[in-house]
Amino acid sequence: MGNCLNTPTADDISLLRGSDSQDGSETANLGPPPPYQESVPIYHPSPNVSRTVTQLTEEEQIKIAKRLGLIQHLPTGVHDGCCKKTKECVICMGEFILGDRLRYLPCMHSFHKDCIDDWLMRSFTCPSCMEPVDAALLTTYETNN
């Protein structure tokens, strides 16, 4: 079987790190990237486990590929400043600012896209309510059919 994780493209990295903003101005101010953001992507087949692609077993590679696909199905949006929504991302504890890229989980909790994508690659649960994301996704599909 082909190894779909062997040659990470820009897309793969953007999925993991959410660094899909075209201008590099934001990251330029942050100084040198921390070790885990360097060019070789680090995957987390389970929480507390950090491996590069070459260290992953085939099973883990499949798990991560599936995970990347599932994350893509989760809706995203831009914070429009609507006050009835959540005001803060519980992951970075930063307030949502007009124009921030957000991602919404099926349990209705919302987070900064970069923050939640990083978390979902480690654990496919909502950090706020612990609801497993895939179980909720499957339920959504079933009710829609």
Binding site: P47, N48, I91, P127, M130
Partner: peptide, 9 residues
């Protein structure tokens, strides 16, 4: 403090 950690804690 191990596998049941969540980012909201």
């Amino acid at each position: 403090l191990k596998d049941q950690w969540a980012a909201a804690m």
